[in-house]
């Protein structure tokens, strides 16, 4: 049973972020040769704004919706086959990234400036996504390391840098709104 309206609010916000992550796969900003989708941006924001526990819960709901067969993964697909497919490592990486981003942000926000703590947390989160994503891509496709890295990581790094820069501003603007609402 829900204990209070605060609990309900967190539940709804976590679901909302899961929906943002799903919609993020369809939101592309055309820059350079590869259009960058905003999915990972929302994963990082989930960790920053909801914190480690609720952030991870939010991504877990997203993954569960996908595993249950709803077309929330990229290219309108879903199902357990996507988790064990070539892009599955990135999906698992999202879960770790949201938790890690939230955790590092919670631990370091008192120690240094807000911006430094946000950037450090998001760098670790992005690293987690690639760690899981690239290793799994290599296992599934059997490509060489060089090819796997360039196809599965180097291509996206400039986009990631832009996303982290944007996320600092976005988190700064949205944090007061969400925190006030949570306390209400």
């Amino acid at each position: 049973m829900m204990k209070s309206s605060g609990q309900l609010r967190k539940t709804v916000y976590a679901s909302l972020f899961a929906a943002f992550i799903s919609a993020g796969a369809y939101l592309a900003i055309p820059i350079g040769p590869v259009p960058i989708t905003l999915q990972t941006l929302f994963v990082l924001l989930t960790g920053l704004l909801l914190g480690s526990r609720w952030g991870a819960a939010s991504v877990a709901i997203y993954l569960l919706a996908g595993i249950a067969g709803l077309p929330v993964f990229s290219a309108g697909t879903g199902g357990i086959g996507q988790i064990i497919g070539p892009k599955g490592g990135y999906l698992i990486g999202f879960l770790v990234a949201a938790y890690l981003t939230g955790l590092i942000n919670e631990k370091t926000s008192g120690l240094s400036g807000r911006v430094i703590s946000d950037v450090a947390a998001m760098l670790c989160g992005t690293a987690a996504i690639y760690l899981f994503g690239v290793i799994w891509l290599k296992i599934i496709t059997g490509m060489e390391w060089g090819k796997t890295l360039s196809l599965g990581m180097y291509l996206f790094l400039p986009g990631d840098a832009l996303k982290i820069a944007a996320a600092v501003f976005i988190a700064g603007a949205l944090r007061p709104i969400i925190e006030v609402r949570k306390e209400k």
């Binding site: 309206s5 309900l8 609010r9 709804v12 916000y13 909302l16 943002f20 900003i29 820059i31 905003l38 941006l41 832009l162 996303k163 820069a165 944007a166 501003f169 976005i170 603007a173 949205l174 709104i177 969400i178 609402r181």
Partner: peptide, 25 residues
């Protein structure tokens, strides 16, 4: 500037969606 575009796109998007979510709550 892609960062400017992302920031100016996502802040209103998320703020409005949160308002809708609050109505739902």
């Amino acid at each position: 500037n892609p960062v400017y575009r992302m920031v100016k796109f996502i802040i209103p998007l998320m703020r409005r969606t949160f308002e809708d979510a609050d109505k739902l709550i």
